[in-house]
Design a binder for these strands. Structure first.
Length: 507
DNA sequence: ATAGGGTTAG
């Protein structure tokens, strides 16, 4: 295990007592402790952390606060909150940093706010990190009222920093309360916000579906930074990798590929560090504006190894550019990937891959990949995967096979899947006999469903295409009823069905 | 050794 070698401790020497503990001279022990802390902070998986943990025991360093805190953070980051908590409970003495670390762990575990608050109250000396961890804890627990109270108390206690403001603003952004986030941002004035504040609020607008606001703020940020350079002030508003990833994504969403390319140029000119996330945002931008080769250039010259997101973007991007064979090849590269470099696919990978097969008519390949999902790749097929395969089979005219698949699938097919089955089936004129029967079957399943969501709009269009007017009326009534009881959240607008049967059957 | 920001499908 590589992490062992990183410690520099010669632990291969003979154990000196019956417990299997090793004896090291004091200078050697100091050296080993520092090396262990570094190794723990750098290690990737929890297997490594466990190995280093037992090594710490054997070296008699188990009660070392700094080492235990480093391990606690590793476990928490791997989602092993119980292990982290046990480590904390078993510490012979705890300092502020250890307490702050467990507070942060409780927060990232999804708002264990009550436990965090109890510890927070018991803490005699609190640092800004203590207050901020508590604010974040409440934000993650969706208790913004309590978060705000703690935030304001930290201001009064004189134990706040720009990080406190950023944590609170981020809480509002994640809750979609951009008005409250913007109020706080404006309260900060001209000098307090740093680049993270800007990144946070820009990401908030992006998340709320306001990419144009993100782009406007980016221009303002660049302008302020240029002014700072002219006046030789401190450059704390220099756009970062994160800024660039956010604004590139905004360009993709508004479809402004000219600005996207210009920002790509700025990134290269200014020497912005390019990591996996920024590469991914750029690739996605190029794929979506039809420049698949530019996207692949970025992929090939990435300064780091592609992660799951990057592979998914490449597979989806090749698919949407009509390059299904290349998408399948990319998938092979992903899962084979050379020793230790493979990336495990997830559910998103297979939606991208199967739709790529569907768009390029790769029936045999798609069917095989679908069949391999669980047994070979360990990804259980979900309704959307069945939808992709139904699409694939229907387009290739294999309607019977599609019908068998839907009938055999676990769980209930959703309206979207049934709709595409119904539509694509009825579309194949040479299969009129089977087609009518299958359409009837799908229509019956649909009529049994609760159509309280946007699916009803699409389906009423499908029915209209099929000229089954009585069913159109039935479903439009259903849509009106659903609209009346809606909670006023995002609702899909009625639009055209994806496949217009009426026009394709006109002659 | 601790607190704040970014990416993928349909």
């Amino acid at each position: 295990m590589a992490a062992y070698y990183a410690t520099g401790a010669r632990v291969q020497r003979k154990p000196v007592d019956s417990c299997g503990c090793y004896f090291l001279s004091p200078p050697m022990l100091t050296h080993s402790r520092a090396a262990l802390v570094r190794a723990v902070a750098a290690c990737a998986g929890c297997r490594e952390a466990q190995a280093l943990h037992s090594l710490a025991w054997k070296l008699g360093l188990a009660s070392d606060v700094v080492l235990a805190t480093a391990l606690l953070i590793r476990y928490a980051k791997r989602g092993l909150l119980a292990t982290a908590q046990r480590l904390f409970d078993e510490m012979p003495r705890r300092d502020v940093v250890a307490c702050n670390a467990i507070l942060a762990a409780l927060g990232s575990a999804g708002g264990r706010a009550a436990g965090a608050r109890a510890l927070f109250e018991r803490m005699a000396d609190r640092t800004p990190a203590t207050w901020n961890a508590m604010v974040t804890c409440y934000c993650r627990a969706d208790d913004l009222g309590s978060a705000r109270l703690v935030f304001e108390a930290s201001l009064r206690a004189g134990s706040s920093s720009v990080v406190s403001w950023n944590a609170m603003i981020n809480g509002y952004c994640k809750a979609g309360r951009m008005d409250a986030a913007r109020d706080l941002f404006d309260l900060m004035g001209r000098t307090l916000p740093d680049v993270v504040t800007w990144n946070t609020i820009m990401a908030g607008y992006l998340h709320r579906g306001e990419p144009a606001t993100v782009i406007a703020m980016f221009h303002r940020l660049v302008h302020i930074h240029q002014q700072q350079q002219q006046h030789e002030e401190e450059h704390k508003l220099r756009p970062t990798t994160v800024t660039m990833a956010t604004v590139v994504t905004a360009c993709t969403q508004v479809g402004d590929s000219a600005l996207g390319r210009q920002i790509h140029l700025q990134i290269r000119q200014q020497g912005t560090r390019v990591d996996a996330v920024l590469s991914n945002a750029l690739m996605d931008m190029y794929f979506k504006c039809g420049s698949a080769d530019c996207a692949l250039d970025i992929f090939r010259t990435m300064p780091c190894r592609p992660n799951l997101f990057c592979w998914n973007t490449v597979i989806a991007g090749l698919g949407m550019n009509g390059r299904g064979e290349d998408a399948v090849t990319a998938f092979r590269d992903m899962v084979e990937g050379g020793r230790k470099h493979e990336v495990k696919p997830d559910a998103v990978t297979f939606v991208a891959l199967l739709s790529a097969c569907s768009h390029s008519g790769l029936v045999a390949a798609g069917r095989k990949l679908f069949a391999d999902m669980l047994p070979v790749h360990g990804v259980p097929p979900q309704t959307e995967h069945y939808g992709c395969v139904v699409d694939l089979l229907c387009r290739a005219g294999r309607v019977d096979e599609a019908a068998r698949l839907v009938r055999a699938m676990p769980g209930r097919p959703n309206a979207k899947l049934l709709g595409s089955l119904l539509l694509l089936d009825a579309r194949a004129p040479e299969r009129q006999e089977d087609g009518v029967r299958l359409s009837e079957w799908a229509a019956r399943r649909i009529s049994e469903m609760d159509l309280g969501d946007g699916a009803a709009y699409g389906l009423s269009n499908v029915y209209a295409s099929l000229q089954r007017w009585e069913r159109v009326e039935e479903h439009r009534k259903g849509v009106r009823a659903a609209a009346g009881h809606g909670k006023g959240t995002r609702r899909k607008q009625p639009g055209r069905a994806r496949y217009d049967l009426a026009s394709s059957c006109a002659n």
